[in-house]
Each structure stands twice: as C-alpha cells, then as structure tokens.
Design a binder for these strands. Structure first.
Lengths: 191, 191
DNA sequence: CTCATAAAATGACCGCGGTCAATAATTAAT
DNA sequence: ATTAATTATTGACCGCGGTCATTTTATGAG
C-alpha cells in the first residue's frame, strides 16, 4: 500500500534543499532562483518540479522549518507573566518575520491552506503559535481576563501579532517598533 | 513647475484601465494578463509599463477603487450599535475580500507601503477603514469599553477583520463563516 | 511653416517560473 | 541474467511579466 520511495529520491531532495539553504544563507530568500538551486544541486530544472509543486513549496519548507525552530525555542523559555513579557518572548519570531518583506508576504499567503489536505509547514507553525499562546494564556502566572474563553484570547494574540508586523512594514519611517506597537494591543486584549 | 501632461497620456491610461476593467468583469482578477490588456486597449506592451510601474500597480488601482466605493457605501449606511451590526455593515467588504484568494493576498501585500511616499489606493482604503471604525467606536450609540483609547479599538477591528478572513481561507471546508467568526472577536474586544 | 526638444509609444528581447515528451535508472518477476 | 514495468531525471520549450534602444508624435520658439 505504501509507495516505495527510492533512496535516490531522498538524496536528490536533500541535495535540492541543501543547495537552497546555502543560497539563502549567502543572500536572502527573495533573490533565490530555481535555476541557481538546481545548478548548485547538480540536477536538471525539471527535477526540481518533480520534488516540489512550485518554488513557493520549497520556500514553505525552508521558512516553515525556521519558524518551527524559533517557536520551539520560545516554548522552551520561561512562561511570560505579562503582555510585555509575551512580546519579549515573541521577539525572535518578530525579528525573523520583519527581516524580509518577502518572507512576511509568503507567510501570510501560506498561512491559510486551500483545503484540509494541503496544510504545509508554514500553516503548521500557525497552529504551533496558537498552541503556545493558548498554553501561556491558561497558565496561572499570566493574569488574564476570564470573561472570554482562552482559545479566543490565543487567536487574538495571533491577530495582533500580524497586525503589528503589517503596520511596521507600512511605516518603516516611523520610530514605533513592532514591540512597542504590540504591547498596547495585548494589554488591552488580555486584561 | 508642473509637468505638462499631454491629453494623449490621459487617453491612453484610460484605455488601459477600461480594458482591464472589462477583462476583469469578463473573468476575474487573477487571470488578468498584461498582454490581453494592451491588446484590448490597442497599444504596445511597453506602453503599459510607461503608465504603471508593474502589473500589481494596475491591480492596486482597480481593487483600491472597488474597496473605496464599498467603504463609502458602508459609511453612508446607519451607525451600528453592536458588534453584530458592525459585522453586518462590513459584509460587502468581506464578500469582496473573500471572493478571490488572489485579491486578498494582493490587498495584504499592498496594505503596507514601503515608504511614506508610495502609499497607493489600497493602502488608502486601510486608512479609510480605520477612520470609519474610529467613527463608529466614538459614536454614543455604540457602547464600548472606555478603558482603552478609541484609536486602539479601531485598529483592533481591522486586525480582527484580517484574522477572520484569513481563517476563512484557511478552512474553506469549515462551516464557520467569516461573520460568525468575527462577531466573538469584536464582542470580546469592544465590550 | 520649420526646426529643435521633449514626451510618448513601440516591439524585439530578456529573466525566470513552470511543463512535458523523451530518456535513463531502479525494481521486481521469471 | 533478461525482461518488463515503474519511477526518477532530463532539457528543450512555453507563458508571461518586465526592459530598453529606437521610432513616432506632440509642443513651443523663431
């Protein structure tokens, strides 16, 4: 029943991902070119698309993995006890998201899957972020309002995180940082 | 001092926009092709890019205009007196935003300008939506919490609107509509 | 009207994501 | 080992957004 995966397939896929990671490390996500990836991996262009639906699917892998790692690190840290500490805890995630406008756009685009079947790495990190927020919100050390279910509070944290980052891109000239913007939101939302 | 704009320029630009509108009306935004636009407008391809920075800039015009119209209609309507009525009032906007995933993605991408100078039509509609929300929130007929500045409440409405629409795309299989999802957010946020 | 200058329009061309029929490598059966 | 069936790889090709040197058209001065 299970499809027999050839060892060659895994090897080629790994070569492609390694090549892509190296190229991203050398410049950035936005300037990644499929042709460069396949050249570095030593395979033909068509091979790339036999392994990934399209270029964005590779990006989904790369960026999703990065975000998952960041979220795991955050989850391993201490329980925040206030909105300010929440924002501090989220800082690594924010830094990554605002480092490249391209990344943020892609994350937003991939946050929602077209169907239940094609939930990709990035979409999973949204779930992960929600679970983390839910954990924080239900922890006794973080005093939050109790007139609203914790699930809703957790979703709200995600909404304000997106909002704060969007506004940061909207006004790069502004001196208000994402963190400064996010704190009042959470303060008002969670109190 | 003022650049002398030739009548020909305005005419060509109008031809391009008219052609684009007709094509969008005939199918949808996503399938719009620059080549089709210029062919219908009866001009060369290069001419298009003399009038618009890129294809997205044209989309910015088209979609921004639509949204501005929708928001004006909403603003001309009655003052909502509850979160449910807010969501009802916003329904035309929501309908347009979820009609095409492509449109929503582009709206998000254009919501933030790269700098203060290049605020386009779509970015302006975000401002417009904010002003409308602020107006609602400060109206005496809508009872809202007073422990938070109205400006923050207005921004929050925008954040939850985006969140609700995103989740709608994320789970097209789900039976929960955008409206149903949005009401609890606003209920908790404004009370 | 004529000519000089600037503005607008042109279309061949390029970059890059993505496709697909043809080919090569792998596996399983005898 | 040979063959047949499956799976992976290849690279020429296409679609479409975007560029730019060249040509065409409008404008203003004398």
């Amino acid at each position: 029943m299970n499809k027999p995966v050839q060892a060659r397939t895994l090897k080629t896929r790994a070569k492609l991902i390694d090549a892509a990671k190296a190229l991203v490390a050398a410049s950035d996500y936005e300037s990644l070119r499929v042709e460069d990836v396949v050249q570095r991996a030593g395979v033909a262009k068509g091979t790339f698309f036999a392994h990934f639906q399209d270029k964005d699917a590779l990006m989904d892998e790369l960026i999703g993995e990065r975000i998952a790692t960041i979220l795991n690190d955050i989850a391993a840290g201490p329980q925040p006890t206030s909105p300010v500490e929440i924002v501090q805890a989220l800082r690594p995630l924010i830094s990554f998201a605002i480092a490249e406008r391209y990344v943020f756009d892609l994350v937003l685009r991939y946050s929602g899957a077209a169907g239940i079947s094609d939930i990709g790495p990035i979409a999973r990190t949204f779930e992960q972020q929600y679970e983390l927020s839910l954990q924080w919100v239900t922890h006794p050390d973080l005093k939050v309002r109790d007139d609203v279910p914790p699930e809703l509070l957790a979703e709200g944290i995600g909404a304000f995180l997106i909002q704060a980052i969007s506004l940061a891109f909207c006004a790069l000239h502004s001196s208000v940082s994402v963190e400064e913007r996010l704190v009042p939101y959470l303060d008002a939302w969670l109190r």
